[in-house]
Amino acid sequence: MLRVPYYYPSFQCTGSACRDNCCIGWEIEIDQQSFARYRNLPGTMGERLRQSISEAGGPHFLLHGEQCPFLNQEHLCDLILFAGEEQLCQICRDHPRFFEWFGSFQEAGLGLCCEEAGRLLFAQREPIAFLELEQSLPGEQKEAPPPLLDILFQARNTAFHLAQERTLSIEERCALLLDFADQLQSALDLNSPDLIPKLCKQAEDPIQRAALLEQLKQEACWEQESVFQGMLSFYQGLEPDRQSWMKKLRQLSVALPELLKLQSAFLAACQERNHEYEHLLVYFLFRYFLKAVFDLEVLPKVKLAVCSFLLIYLCDLSTFSGTGTLTSDQRVGNAKDYSREIEYSPENLDAFYLKSWEEDCFSLDALFSLLFTHKTKG
């Protein structure tokens, strides 16, 4: 069984129409099966392949400047033109798809570092739904599902419910998600997963939600600018993929006081598109929440979803400050830039998970205060 977002089967690479080609600026590793095939491929293309591959540190293509040696002047792949997509190495066939195996149960999605994946994510106003397909991924793992899978699967469904509760603001939903994750984490820390179904039921109760939100709002006392500056400082300390990203973060930090003054105008101009932030939350929950079945750390996964939304929101606010508008392409671009820098760097993801326990700006008190300082309509 393969579970995917409803738009997953619709994905098709836009090829030369892509404005940020994935064949540029990425190191392209070659799996062993493809490497063996390339070594034995006859003719001119085989010779060209062998001259374009380095084995140092594992097989990979030698970039020409920053681009793959098989990306031609029309921004099309010569390997595909030569023999079709089946000639590609595994990473090129898969990208931007991501996969997760939970025993015989599997999931797949489309990573936001691809602008077409972003366009598909944001295209529909309706809540994100999921499909269950009667197929298996290559390399299926045969071992039994992790013992906690069913319980955490139920908890993730509750998280989806909270993220898509459109009677609440996006910020209120984020706060409920964080509180829910904190309770889940406590249950896991106490080795009491049997408490989780009850926590799910409580989290979905409208009366209990309303009381909890009122309590959290009254206790919020941190100053918004200082929390955002702390977050920006953390992200500036990570290893960048592109220097343009570091420049953007520095600009956000300098301009932050003025940007925050523009929130009301920004939210008024984009109020019909807040479902896009909802979709962001669901994307991050889908991609990362269930990974807690392997390390028992669910709270950092939900903090990642919320903080990702907040930083992308800040990038959107900065874009709006320069033009007075935020186009769909600009929102896709901001999400793509963030995803490339954070999601596609295992080191940066690990750094976030670690510091989400330690940094003041990622504490629940700080995040609740930040969320309740500004409001958007659901």
Rank of each mutant, 00 (worst) to 15 (best):
G15W: 02
C18Q: 10
P5N: 05
R3T: 14
W26P: 01
G43D: 02
Y38H: 03
Q12K: 06
R37Q: 05
C18P: 01
N40S: 08
T14N: 13
Y7M: 06
G43I: 03
P9W: 09
P42V: 04
S10A: 11
I30T: 07
N40T: 01
T14Y: 07
G15H: 06
Y7N: 08
W26N: 10
C13A: 08
F35R: 07
G15N: 09
C23D: 14
L41W: 01
A36Q: 02
N21H: 15
P42K: 01
F11V: 07
S16V: 05
D31Q: 05
R37D: 04
C23A: 11
P9H: 10
G25N: 14
T14I: 14
Y6D: 07
A36Y: 01
Q12R: 06
Y6V: 00
E29D: 15
P42G: 01
Q12S: 09
A36E: 05
Q32D: 15
Q32F: 03
S16R: 08
T14H: 09
T14F: 08
E27H: 12
R3P: 09
P9K: 09
C23F: 05
N21S: 15
D20C: 05
I24D: 13
F11S: 06
S16I: 03
F11C: 04
E27Q: 14
I30V: 08
Y6I: 00
R39M: 13
C22A: 12
G43F: 02
G43N: 04
G15Y: 05
Y38G: 04
C18G: 09
C13L: 06
R19C: 06
E29A: 11
A36G: 00
C23N: 12
P5A: 05
T14S: 15
I30W: 01
G25Q: 15
Y6G: 01
S34I: 01
P5W: 06
A17E: 11
F11P: 00
F35K: 04
A17S: 13
V4L: 00
Q33N: 04
C22K: 02
N21A: 15
E27K: 10
C13T: 15
W26T: 11
G43L: 02
Q33G: 01
C18D: 08
C18H: 06
W26H: 07
F11A: 07
V4P: 09
N21G: 14
G25P: 05
R39E: 13
P9Y: 08
G43H: 03
G25Y: 14
A36S: 02
Q33A: 04
W26V: 10
P9M: 12
Y8W: 14
Y8Q: 09
F11T: 09
L41G: 00
V4S: 00
R19Q: 13
P5V: 02
R39G: 04
C13H: 07
N40Q: 10
W26A: 12
A17Q: 08
F35D: 12
A36M: 02
Q33F: 01
